[in-house]
């Protein structure tokens, strides 16, 4: 029984832990933290933050994403969670507050318009309860393109 053995066991473990810690740190950097957004506090810095200004982003040269991936994102609670308020193609237990989107591909909306509405719908409806998914970094540009592709394909 030697120190060498212990070291030979511990060293890879330590290396693995360091690497995984770095990976999680990188991932965390990308994710917006709740404290970056307004809160109710009278004293904490987030209490002084205003809501992010409206962004109307309607890229006309939009390359559509993958509808299947878009469906996953739209249904996932931690991602779009669109089902919380909207009926959608293939979804179950959907909410009823928002418009039914299950045939949204036949609505005549262009992909760019759909993208803009998911990104930040306040440009159309300033008082909307729909979260500004792009402006507030809930979804990435690619994820929103995927969701737009899914909606375009919903018929």
């Amino acid at each position: 029984m030697s120190i060498r053995r212990v070291v030979s066991f511990l060293l890879p473990v330590c290396v693995m832990l360091t690497v995984s810690a770095q990976v999680t740190a990188e991932q965390k950097e990308k994710v917006a933290k709740p404290s970056e957004f307004p809160c109710l506090s009278y004293t904490a810095p987030c209490g002084k933050i205003g809501v992010r200004p409206v962004v109307k982003k309607m890229p006309q040269d939009l390359s559509l994403g993958d509808p299947e991936r878009g469906k996953q994102i739209a249904f996932k609670r931690k991602k779009g969670n669109c089902l919380a308020c909207h009926r959608m193609n293939g979804g179950s237990q959907s909410g009823t507050r928002g418009p039914d989107l299950s045939r949204y591909g036949s609505s005549g909306r262009t992909a760019a318009e759909i993208y803009a509405m998911v990104y930040d719908n306040r440009w159309q409806f300033p008082d909307t309860v729909m979260p500004p998914f792009g402006t507030n970094e809930v979804l990435t540009d690619r994820e929103i393109r995927d969701v737009a592709a899914f909606l375009r394909a919903s018929r």
């Binding site: 917006a32 709740p34 308020c85 959907s94 909410g95 507030n136």
Partner: peptide, 22 residues
């Protein structure tokens, strides 16, 4: 918050109140 909700977003007339949220 990140989702840009107020208490009122779910608990006032014209909001989600009375509608299904999932």
């Amino acid at each position: 918050g990140q989702l840009n909700f107020a208490c009122a977003s779910c608990h006032t007339p014209g909001s989600v109140m009375g509608h299904k949220l999932r």
